[in-house]
Structure formats: structure tokens, C-alpha cells
Write a protein that binds this DNA or RNA. Structure first.
Length: 340
DNA sequence: TGGATTTGACCGCT
DNA sequence: AGCGGTCAAATCCA
């Protein structure tokens, strides 16, 4: 959060009140930029707080809960800002999986060669978890940007003539990194892949699939051997699992404390990377989280809500927070010190 | 060998 | 001329 945002937010002006949906594009983008920054910094603060408070019971749970709420607030504001921008909306035509859970529609559509082409721009930490399979057909270094832009087409571009495309470009160098994703055209194919599928992982193992290499954009100028990518991915999956365990432990500790009930179920997998970021999403639907990893709570009937109070998890949480274990919680550094 | 990504070259627009 | 978007040959892996 920048302490001195000098945004010309029209308080009460324009009839909308506050940050008007009809604000000029640059103003709108400025607001989104500041909110995004705040969101990112909150995530970093969480990471740091969780690192410092690890194992400190109530203090850790309290910090996780409060910071999670702060993070949630940013997310909701971003969704309002982006979602209210008519230009950022793609026409709702063919049924398709939603963009990633953490996706945030932002700003005006970029200029393109075809201005009548529907575009939807989002900021997301998980640019590839949108339920579709993509084939990369190009990558280019864009002027005045730090990261190259990857060009993807629906993998059914050829066999089903699906026109859907997207461009993925890392947005910043923060932790976790945000990716700007521009979707163009609607899918005309009906892909069997579920939205929960992680195409960058599931497909890469068989040599196919989408854009995992864009998690390592800085390596694009020099080709990485795929075996190395596979190694990185395996390590990432391992980290995600560990983060899932530890994040869930934080959540359960927090719920237990606030619910004033239940025995100590701390999973106790104190794993370094990304614990705080996981806790950032403490209000995520707990049933979903545990269901995703039932082995974490042996003997606990999650489906019946045992041991968990999910009544105060609202729809917003379900909509805007990523499940634990997805890439927002899984970041780290490579040997060369770069982020992934 | 098939299917994927990478990356330099090419093309069209401003 | 410079830029972004796309093509396609080269390359890699299962």
C-alpha cells in the first residue's frame, strides 16, 4: 500500500459516488493499480508475519485471519473495479470455465489490430488455470516491459476451429507474481477439461499441454531443457503440497480458536515457502480445502462439516480466493535467484 | 515419430 | 521505421 495515493477519485461526484464505474480509463487504471499493489503488499506482509509468528498459536491465527480479511477486501475491490468496466467484459456466450479464481478484470482493452475483437484483460497469479488447454504459438519481448509476452491459442484451434486466444505476460516481480492475461475471442469448443485441472502440470508430464514455461519467462532467451522444467515442476508440486498442509493448519488453528472448540489438530507441517501467502486466503471455503486434501484430517468427516465452521464463509470468498495449493501459494526462487 | 515449445523471420499497422 | 502479432523451421522429449 502506498501511503500517499494521490488518486483523483471523484468522491461523490458523477452521481456514482466514490470510485465511479464510469471513471476515465486512466483514473480507473490508476485505482486498479493501487489496489493491486495493496493486494500484493498484503500478501508479502502475510508471508513475513507468518514466518515470524510461526508456531505461536493464537498470534499466528489472529494475524492470518486479519491479514486474510485485508487481502479479501482488496480482492473484492479489484473485482468491483474491473468487473464494472464494460470494456473489460467479454461477451457471455458459449459456456466455458471461468478465468482463474484470483483473476481480476482490469482496465480498458488494449489496442489491437482488430478493435472489434472481444477482449478481456485480467490480472492473475494463475494465468494457466482457466480450464482450457492452450498451445503456445509465439513469444515476444514487448517494448518497455520486463517480461516477454506469450501468445497462446486454444489447443482446438485446428481440429475444432476454436478462435480463442490469450496473451500472457508477467505483470510484476512481486511475490507472488501477477500475470496480465488478455483473452481474445470466445471458445467455440467445449473442452472436456475441468476448471480445476492444472493444465500446466497435467499436460506437461506427457509432453503436451499449455504454457508452463511462462512461469520462467526470463529463461526464454536461452532455451531451458525440458528435463529441467520437469524438475522445477516436480519441486513446485511438492512445495504446493507442503503449503497446502501448512496453510490448512493455519486455517484450522484460526477456526478452532475463533470457534472455541475442538481439539488441537495442527498439522504441524511447518514448511517455509509461502506459508503466509497461503494464510492470506484463510477465509477460503474450508470444506473445499479439506476435501481437496482429506488425508490432512484423518478421521474428520469434512463432508458433514465436522470440526469446521463454514457458515461465515461467504460467496465472495468462494469466488475470489484460490484454493490452497494453487500457484498463488507456491512461489520461491530458483538457483539463480529469480522468482517463480 | 508425433506433438510440443522455442525463436528468428516475416507481415501489417501506425 | 518501429512495433506487436503471427508463422514456421528447428529443436526437444516421451
Amino acid at each position: 500500500m502506498q501511503g500517499q495515493s494521490r488518486l483523483a477519485v471523484s468522491g461523490g461526484g458523477g452521481g456514482d459516488g466514490g470510485v465511479s464505474f464510469g471513471a476515465p480509463a486512466d483514473e480507473h487504471e490508476a485505482v486498479v493499480r493501487e489496489l493491486t499493489r495493496g493486494h500484493e503488499l498484503t500478501a508479502r506482509l502475510q508471508a513475513e508475519a507468518m514466518r515470524v509468528l510461526r508456531g505461536q498459536g493464537q498470534a499466528e491465527a489472529t494475524a492470518a485471519f486479519i491479514l486474510g480479511e485485508v487481502s479479501r477486501t482488496f480482492t473484492v475491490c479489484l473485482s468491483i473495479m474491473g468487473g464494472a468496466s464494460p470494456s473489460s467484459r467479454a461477451p457471455a456466450t458459449s459456456p466455458r470455465p471461468e478465468t482463474p479464481d484470483s483473476a481480476i478484470s482490469v482496465g480498458a482493452p488494449p489496442r489491437g489490430k482488430e478493435d472489434n475483437v472481444p477482449r478481456k484483460k485480467t490480472l492473475t497469479t494463475s494465468p494457466f488455470q482457466d480450464g482450457y488447454k492452450w498451445k503456445k504459438y509465439g513469444q515476444k519481448k514487448i517494448n518497455n516491459t520486463n517480461f516477454p509476452r506469450g501468445y497462446y491459442r486454444c489447443s482446438h484451434h485446428r481440429d475444432r476451429n476454436c478462435p480463442a486466444q490469450k496473451q500472457v505476460q508477467q505483470h510484476n516481480d512481486d511475490v507472488p507474481p501477477l500475470f496480465a492475461v488478455v483473452y481474445t475471442h470466445e471458445h467455440t469448443c467445449e473442452q472436456p477439461s475441468a476448471a480445476s485441472e492444472l493444465p500446466d502440470k497435467t499436460n506437461s508430464a506427457s509432453g503436451g499441454g499449455s504454457a508452463a514455461p511462462d512461469y520462467f519467462p526470463e529463461t526464454s532467451t536461452r532455451r531451458r531443457r525440458k528435463s529441467t522444467l520437469a524438475d522445477d515442476r516436480a519441486a513446485m508440486e511438492e512445495r504446493e503440497h507442503q503449503v497446502l498442509v501448512s496453510s490448512l493448519a493455519s486455517v484450522l488453528q484460526g477456526r478452532q480458536w475463533y470457534d472455541d472448540g475442538g481439539d488441537s489438530r495442527g498439522v504441524g507441517a511447518g514448511v517455509g515457502v509461502g506459508v503466509g501467502a497461503g494464510a492470506a486466503h484463510a477465509p477460503a471455503p474450508a470444506s473445499q480445502l479439506v476435501a481437496a486434501s482429506p488425508e490432512l484430517q484423518p478421521g474428520l468427516d469434512v463432508s458433514a462439516g465436522e470440526g469446521l465452521d463454514v457458515t461465515d464463509y461467504d460467496v465472495t470468498d468462494a469466488l475470489f480466493f484460490e484454493p490452497f495449493g494453487t500457484d498463488i501459494n507456491s512461489f520461491g526462487t530458483r538457483d539463480d535467484g529469480t522468482l517463480f
